[in-house]
């Protein structure tokens, strides 16, 4: 579904991604872990071109999206993204946050979008917040609404950029729970996170990044129980 070939990204002289080759198949739940500054967020943000790659190719559903002629806006409709800082639109109600993109892009009528949004809100138990503004919600509620805002577009893949890192510890659970249930529904997911428990439980494959490269990848059991690369062994000994 997503194919990355020799992806490189430099900010000025600083090479953040140093030649990444990776294929993500439909239905996979890929968790990316690594120390700060290893390039894992940049890698994720390159997948929907929020960061423009300096070199290399990215293919999505048979389209080479690094090609200038591809309409990236259409591609992004199929790639939902969830941010560390939630990025809900503070001037719109929860319902408007969810329905804005589907209606403005002509994918759904206002009625369809509202119905879909209420359905999704019911799923996360926040229907009564539909007409609230984001400023009145807790961090956990904001992030869960950000997730269903992306889901309302019926994306083929969801990208999560450290979705729980800005949350109070007591709210991490509710967000991970929602993500787990999405994984169980068969959604293709790429998740950058520091939540090792989530990686162990949900991932079909775990990648370890260091200094702009994927240095090791494996099934979660092998990855955590039998790490091979010394850098990964060192990293796991610190975080587990």
């Amino acid at each position: 579904m997503i194919e990355v070939k020799n992806l490189k990204k430099a900010f000025g002289d600083h090479l953040v991604l140093d030649g990444i080759d990776e294929t993500i198949a439909k239905g996979e739940k890929v968790v990316v872990i690594g120390p700060s500054g290893s390039g894992k967020s940049t890698f994720l943000r390159c997948l929907n071109l929020l960061e423009e790659p300096s070199d290399g190719e990215i293919w999505f559903e048979g389209n080479k999206i690094t090609d200038k002629v591809v309409n990236i806006n259409q591609i992004r409709q199929k790639m939902g993204m969830v941010f560390q800082q939630f990025n809900l639109f503070p001037h719109l109600t929860v319902l408007e946050n969810i329905t804005l993109a589907p209606t403005k892009l002509g994918i759904m009528t206002k009625e369809e979008a509202n119905e879909k949004a209420m359905e999704l809100l019911a799923k996360i138990g926040l229907t009564e917040k539909a007409s609230s503004y984001p400023g009145k919600l807790s961090g956990g509620q904001k992030q869960r609404i950000a997730i269903i805002r992306a889901l309302a577009m019926n994306p083929a893949v969801m990208l999560f950029d450290e979705p729980t890192s800005a949350l109070d510890p007591e709210m991490v659970g509710e967000v991970l729970e929602l993500m787990t249930s999405l994984a169980e529904d068969g959604l293709t997911m790429v998740v950058v996170t520091h939540e090792m428990g989530f990686a162990k439980k949900v991932a079909t494959r775990v990648l370890f990044m260091d200094e702009g490269k994927i240095v090791e990848q494996n099934t979660p059991v092998e990855f955590f129980d039998n790490p091979k690369h010394p850098r990964l062994q060192e990293f796991l000994s610190k975080v587990l």
Partner: peptide, 30 residues
């Protein structure tokens, strides 16, 4: 306005002008 607002709009598939008009400008004006 926080950079994340533009990124959130764009990541949903809205183009630059639409994101500016519907998300950035209303907040900026306030």
């Amino acid at each position: 306005i926080d950079r994340g607002q533009m990124e959130a709009g764009r990541s949903l598939g809205l183009n630059y002008v639409t994101t500016m008009r519907l998300i950035i400008l209303p907040q900026a004006v306030r």
